[in-house]
Computed example of a mutant assay.
Amino acid sequence: MDETRRDRDIEGRAHNARPRDGLGRPLPYGAEGVERQPEGVVRTPEGTVREAQRLLDAGMPFHAHEVFEDAWKSGPDGERELWRGLAQLAVGLTHSARGNATGGARLLRRGAAALEAFTAARPHGMDVAALTGWARELAVRVERAEGGPVDAAREAPRLR
Rank of each mutant, 00 (worst) to 15 (best):
M1F: 14
M1K: 09
M1D: 14
D2M: 05
E3C: 11
R6K: 13
R6S: 12
D7W: 15
R8N: 02
R8Q: 15
D9Y: 09
D9W: 09
R13S: 08
N16E: 14
N16F: 05
A17F: 03
R18C: 12
R20Q: 14
D21P: 00
L23Y: 12
L23S: 08
G24A: 10
R25E: 13
R25L: 15
P26E: 06
A31D: 14
E32M: 11
E32P: 05
G33D: 05
V34M: 08
V34R: 07
Q37F: 05
E39V: 13
E39T: 14
G40R: 11
G40N: 08
V41H: 02
V42Y: 06
V42C: 07
R43K: 07
P45K: 12
E46I: 00
E46N: 01
R50M: 04
A52C: 00
A52V: 00
Q53P: 00
Q53W: 00
A58F: 09
A58M: 11
G59H: 06
P61R: 10
P61V: 12
F62K: 07
H63I: 01
H63P: 02
A64D: 03
H65V: 04
E66I: 10
F68N: 06
E69D: 15
E69S: 12
D70V: 14
D70W: 13
A71I: 10
W72R: 14
K73F: 10
S74Q: 13
P76K: 14
P76T: 11
W83M: 04
W83G: 06
W83H: 10
L89T: 03
L89M: 03
A90Q: 08
A90E: 04
V91L: 11
V91G: 02
S96I: 06
S96V: 04
N100C: 08
N100M: 06
A101C: 08
T102F: 13
T102P: 01
G104K: 08
G104R: 03
R106T: 14
L107H: 13
L108E: 05
G111C: 07
A112V: 11
L115N: 09
A117L: 04
A117G: 09
F118S: 03
T119G: 02
A120Q: 13
A120H: 03
A120K: 07
A121C: 01
R122G: 01
P123Q: 10
P123W: 07
D127L: 01
A129Y: 03
L131Y: 01
T132N: 00
G133V: 09
W134A: 00
W134V: 00
A135N: 01
A135K: 00
A135P: 00
R136E: 15
R136F: 05
E137N: 12
E137T: 15
R141L: 14
R144M: 10
R144C: 04
E146F: 04
G147S: 10
G148K: 10
P149G: 13
V150I: 15
V150W: 14
R154C: 03
A156V: 03
A156M: 07
P157E: 07
P157R: 12
R158W: 10
R160Y: 02
R160W: 09
